[in-house]
């Protein structure tokens, strides 16, 4: 069966002989987009996070065939060396990673998470379920679906806060 995905803005058609292929394995093994990582293959770590139709999901817990016609953004579509997105630059600046394996998932998750906050989505810490202020604890809670065994969490929080508060400005200063 043919599955057509729009990946990072480009239309890709996969001839899938097997419906068992997860979205994650389709990206990694069949589209050679290995930036999306496999940490557990069961939705327990977040390393495989991609953005599908504007929302972050675990690509390991989805079949590729279920995404025919969907728009998918992977880490490769967020920014490449020489043209990194503010969130990626903030992760470098704050050392929001060590081994780097969970990092693409963290960045995808953080990127979509800020969008969720902009839409006013509450979290379990948002006491009155009203629009959330992006406190450090709110960042921590909303990023808890991305495990980091090197345990860069405090730096990840710093990076996301920085990117959310205008990483662009900081980048401009860095570049200057």
């Amino acid at each position: 069966m043919d599955v057509t995905l729009t990946v990072n803005g480009a239309q890709r058609t996969l001839q899938l002989d097997d419906p068992r292929v997860s979205l994650l394995d389709a990206l990694r093994q069949r589209l050679d987009l290995t930036g999306t990582k496999k940490g557990c293959d069961h939705g327990q770590c977040g390393a495989c996070t991609v953005i599908v139709n504007g929302r972050r999901i675990n690509s390991c817990l989805s079949l590729a065939v279920m995404h025919d016609g969907d728009e998918i953004t992977t880490i490769e579509g967020i920014g490449q060396p020489g043209d990194l997105a503010p969130m990626q630059q903030a992760f470098i600046r704050h050392d929001g990673f060590q081994c780097g394996y969970c990092t693409p998932g963290q960045i995808m998750s953080a990127t979509a998470m800020l969008d969720e906050v902009r839409q006013g989505w509450p979290s379990q810490l948002s006491g009155d379920l009203g629009p959330a202020e992006l406190t450090d604890d709110e960042i921590r809670e909303r990023m808890s679906g991305n495990l980091c065994r090197c345990s860069c969490y405090p730096n990840i929080v710093d990076a996301i806060r920085d990117a959310a508060q205008g990483g662009d400005r900081a980048n401009a200063e860095d570049a200057a």
Binding site: I75, I78, F91, G100
Partner: peptide, 17 residues
């Protein structure tokens, strides 16, 4: 900053598999 940082944050650092 880590010199390999740009590779790691962009998914272009290649791991074992």
């Amino acid at each position: 900053d880590r010199p390999e940082g740009p590779l790691k944050v962009s998914g272009t650092a290649t791991y074992a598999d």
